[in-house]
């Protein structure tokens, strides 16, 4: 099969029109405003968790939405980063920022290893390889002593940021997570709109042509993979410090599926899609926590519905509405 056409993407990669730029600015202002106001209306802990997952989904989207690479094993970077961050904060007594850096470095390292293996194959194989490698590291996490096995690492201290600011205050913690999320979001935005991002999109659209133009596509794909894994690591580490727990759930395959679902619901290859998707899915899980195992069924139904009817996702559909 030829892998040249990639209808995964629906957003046009034409030069950014004024309309689109304006739309992005408005969207960003709305998002920031909403996140500043929101903690006064709902649980800050829920919002913090949602922001961590939103960053995770944005990192994942960088790979699938702009590189056309479907990783089905992003729980590996998210989960292992959260383990290392939790361990560093709890047992090594690291300050939160250093703990998050430790987790992030772990994710970057695994991203380099797994990425250099996975980019050797394309398309469907890429997805299977990333999934298999993540499953392997899940078993490793299950076996290793420091992860606490089924219990995970609990009661992770939030500590003091830079050794000074006490993060046990809910609002202070909220501000920190907010800053991390916005910084990560803007970084991803910058990456997508950089020359590097343009090459990445070119590879997604037509890899042989990108090769013929002299681009070392493997190198671009590997860097994209590492960036995505690293940012997923930032999200995982921040989550471990905020929620004060790192567990097997974060590193197991359903987590990889969940981040795919969030991005798909919000809109593959849209800037705000993963954020919207993460909030929608987490809100749904929050509301549906009473129905137990049916959550799995509902998630499955959303997958099927999205793939068959709403391939553009929520944000993609809205954008298409405005384009008309």
């Amino acid at each position: 099969m030829d892998t040249t056409t990639s209808p995964v993407m629906t957003g046009s990669s034409a030069a950014p029109s004024m309309l689109r730029r304006n739309g992005e600015t408005i969207g960003f202002v709305v998002m920031v405003a909403a996140l500043i106001v929101a903690p006064f209306f709902t649980y800050p802990l829920f919002l913090m968790q949602a922001m961590c997952f939103a960053l995770f989904a944005c990192a994942f989207n960088l790979l699938i939405g702009y590189g056309g690479l479907l990783s089905f094993g992003h729980a590996l970077y998210f989960g292992w980063a959260s383990y290392l961050a939790a361990h560093a904060a709890k047992l090594w007594g690291f300050t939160p920022e250093l703990a998050i850096l430790t987790g992030t470095a772990t994710a970057a390292f695994f991203g380099l290893l797994a990425g250099s293996l996975a980019i050797r194959r394309q398309g469907i194989y890429f997805a299977m390889i990333t999934l298999a490698l993540a499953q392997m590291m899940y078993f490793v996490a299950l076996r290793m002593r420091f992860t606490g096995g089924e219990d995970g690492i609990q009661a992770v201290p939030r500590g003091r940021l830079f050794g000074v600011i006490d993060l046990n205050n809910e609002m202070t913690m909220y501000v920190v997570v907010f800053v991390i999320f916005i910084a990560g979001f803007l970084l991803i935005y910058r990456i997508i709109h950089s020359p590097f991002g343009e090459v990445l999109k070119a590879i997604r659209e037509n890899e042989p042509r990108a090769v013929s133009l002299g681009y070392k596509t493997d190198r671009y794909k590997l860097i994209a993979f590492m960036l995505s894994a690293t940012l997923a690591g930032v999200a995982g580490s921040t989550k471990a410090i905020t929620m004060q727990i790192a567990s097997l759930t974060d590193v197991n395959w359903p987590m990889s599926g969940e981040v795919v679902l969030m991005t798909l619901v919000g809109g593959l290859g849209t800037i705000f899609g993963p954020v919207v998707g993460a909030f929608v899915i987490l809100f749904m899980q929050f509301k549906l926590s009473v129905v137990g195992e049916w959550v799995l069924v509902i998630q499955g139904l959303i997958f099927v519905t999205c793939v068959l009817l709403f391939r553009r996702g929520i944000v993609g559909e809205i954008a298409a509405l405005f384009k008309r």
Partner: peptide, 24 residues
């Protein structure tokens, strides 16, 4: 007629539905 990846995503959804029902 779509990219292979959609088939993977859809059948993943089917797997979740089936497993969820079985667990219930």
């Amino acid at each position: 007629k779509l990219d292979h990846l959609y088939g993977l995503l859809l059948t993943f959804g089917v797997a979740l539905i089936v497993e969820g029902i079985a667990r219930n």
